[in-house]
Write a protein that binds this DNA or RNA. Sequence first.
DNA 1: CCTCAGGCTGAAACTCGGTTGCAAAAAGTA
DNA 2: TACTTTTTGCAACCGAGTTTCAGCCTGAGG
Lengths: 140, 140
Amino acid sequence: MSALDRLFTERGVRPTPLRREVLALLYEADRPLTWKEAFARLSPSGVNKVSLYRTFSLLEEKGLVHKVLGADGAWHYCAHPLERPGCPGNHAHFLCLQCGRMTCLVEQAIPTVDLPEGYAVEGKQLLAYGRCPSCSETQG
Amino acid sequence: MSALDRLFTERGVRPTPLRREVLALLYEADRPLTWKEAFARLSPSGVNKVSLYRTFSLLEEKGLVHKVLGADGAWHYCAHPLERPGCPGNHAHFLCLQCGRMTCLVEQAIPTVDLPEGYAVEGKQLLAYGRCPSCSETQG
DNA sequence: CCTCAGGCTGAAACTCGGTTGCAAAAAGTA
DNA sequence: TACTTTTTGCAACCGAGTTTCAGCCTGAGG
C-alpha cells in the first residue's frame, strides 16, 4: 500500500484513481493549485469538471488539503505535508496577480487576531499579492 | 459644496447622484458592504445592477474606498475615513460566516510579510472569519 | 458466483456573481 | 443650438461552482 493510499484510508476516504491522481498532482506541484490549473493538467486523462470539484471539496473536508481564497477570487488548494497531515495551513500565502501562481510562505505564521468578547474565530488567512520574481522581470 | 462632493472633485470624479448615494451609504454603514448588501439597500431607488458594479470599481480605482475579498468569495467595499482619504485599508477584517457582515479591525494592522528577493507586493489582506457576537448567541 | 445497496462518476442543466457591448440620456463645451 | 464626452440602463454573455439524476463500480452477504 502506497503512502498516499495510507493517507486516504486513515481518513476514511476510498482511494479511487481520480483521488489518487488529484492528490498526487497537488504533492507534485508543491504549491496551492486552483481548480483551473488542476483541470488543465489533468485534462489529458479526460477528467470530468464536476468530479474534480467534488474531489477537491472531499479532500478539504477530510483534512487532506487546505484551501486559500486568492485575490483573484478563486480557491487555491494545497496538500498538507506528508509528515504532518492535518496541518491547518496556518501560514501566509503570496499570490502573483500576473501568472496566478500562489506560493506558501510556510515560515510566516499568521499572527493572532485580537477580537472583542463574543467573536468566535473559525479560521483566518493572510494573503499578500503582487508580482512574483519571474513576472517582475518579464514586465517593466 | 458638501464634504462628499469635495472628495469627489479632489479625485477627479464627477459627483453624480448615484455616486453620492453609494458613497453616502458606505459612510453610513461604517463597515464593508458587499455589492449585494448595497443593492438591497438601494433597490427602493431603482438602481441598475451594472451601474452599481461600475460605481464600486470606480470608487475603488480612485482611492475613495478599499475592497476586501471575504471567505464567502464576495468583495466587500469599505469607505475610507473622511479625515484621511486615501487610506489603503491596512488593517485586519472579520467576516461573520452566518450573517455575512464584515467588520473592520482598525486597531489590528496587517503585519509585514517577509518575502524572498524579487517579489513585488502590491497589497495584502488579513481576514479572520467565524461568528460575530450576535450570531454566536442565536445559535448553540 | 450472484445479487443487492451504497458510494463514485459523468453529463446536462442551472444558479449566481460579475462583465461586455451598445444605445439612450445627461452634462459639459463652444 | 450643436457637438462631444461621460454616464446610465438594458440585454446578452461569461465563468465558477452546484444540483440533479442516471449509470457504473465496488464491496458485503448469501
